[in-house]
Design a binder for these strands. Sequence first.
DNA 1: TCAAAAGTGTTGTTTATACACCCATGT
DNA 2: ACATGGGTGTATAAACAACACTTTTGA
Lengths: 230, 230
Amino acid sequence: MVRRMSPESRERPQRTAPAEPLVAVFVVIFTVVDDDLKVLLIRRGIDPFKGQWAIPGGRLRQQETLDKAAARKLVEETGVQDVYLEQLYTFSELDPQARGGAVAIAYFALVDYDSVRLPEREEWSTCWFSLKGLPSLAFANESVLDYALSRLRNKMEYTNVAYSLLPRYFTMSQLQKVYESILDKGVDKRNFRKRMLALGLVQPTERKAATGAHRPAQIYTFSSRTPTVI
Amino acid sequence: MVRRMSPESRERPQRTAPAEPLVAVFVVIFTVVDDDLKVLLIRRGIDPFKGQWAIPGGRLRQQETLDKAAARKLVEETGVQDVYLEQLYTFSELDPQARGGAVAIAYFALVDYDSVRLPEREEWSTCWFSLKGLPSLAFANESVLDYALSRLRNKMEYTNVAYSLLPRYFTMSQLQKVYESILDKGVDKRNFRKRMLALGLVQPTERKAATGAHRPAQIYTFSSRTPTVI
DNA sequence: TCAAAAGTGTTGTTTATACACCCATGT
DNA sequence: ACATGGGTGTATAAACAACACTTTTGA
């Protein structure tokens, strides 16, 4: 599942004169676990910013498309495929030291926590961080995260991208908690259910979740697990 | 006003071995004139696609930021500054022939037709094209235009970016026609005025436009001429 | 006096918000 | 029997859509 490929190992060769800009692809990977929105960060193994946390990324390979590079990075770091992955923005001021300039194409991805398998490595280790307790980040990665978060919040309001943060079967409460964690505010239970069903975003199944000392919950599933504007 | 700089003159040097991807910046420049949405295209002066129409663009210069490159391109082609200009998307599959790959960062800009001065050149001449009568385009520029258009239509609904398509003073009918041209559908006059005023998007001035054999129109101006989500 | 664009209100419909109690289960 | 989370309906407010006639001017 997880490819053990040292990320960014070919990054930042010492370059000499006729410098083309470096082209790198980064992926902001979000998940929700324990009612908390988290982002996957990687601890840099080399300078600059050695030992600092950063958004995972690496150089674009020859003849590779941006979408492919982002999907590859995502697989390298989480083992997951076929999740929501979209281009976010392209930055050119993140690494002012790069000779010839540097262009960083940022993507963002939404993954179900339980289907992720983090690679185990000494260097370039990765870890989930709550957005409420971020460490200081390499490059200007705070601004990238801010932007990703605001894009995610917007998308939650008018698309079905939440499908990519949940397993195939889930309860209405689970879904609501995902929304609440991301929007960072409580929402009314009745209105939430009404809207999800009226929009046709989710459908009840025949299954019930008999878990805990309370009434079993209806199990729902997304009507569509492809990105859709509603 | 207009800098006579041959665009893309330093583009596509014949490159040999250790190819970094080419990094180019393109600007989709929209305007509305004669109740018609138009886009500025440039006739390519060199191969590939010599003689074909394309979205204006050029290579990113060393140490130049993307925003600066886009603003520079916009000035080169139209002479205007300080208009709405936003990054659109980054493409990597537009030029499959480029050795080492090519990355194209597309921007889009909104300009007031009357403040544009097109440069006069033999090669690389530019021309406004109605979106309803586009020629066939170089690279995969049709898809870039499609994307720019849908982004523009969305932005018209929830921002004040129309300010960048109109002169400082205008009538409600002019404004409405801009909206109708872009959305490609008629809207109700009363509802339109109500909404513009209720949102505080525009403000009446003391001036009236006495033009033509009919009642003079109130002159309005945008409450804010900086990009704002409403 | 006519043509041409400017200007103006009301009504019905849809959509969003606020809010409180009963239900099914395990212990 | 009680604690726990699951499940439901109604009333109000706000936003949006449909719709037709009068006003002011220049020719």
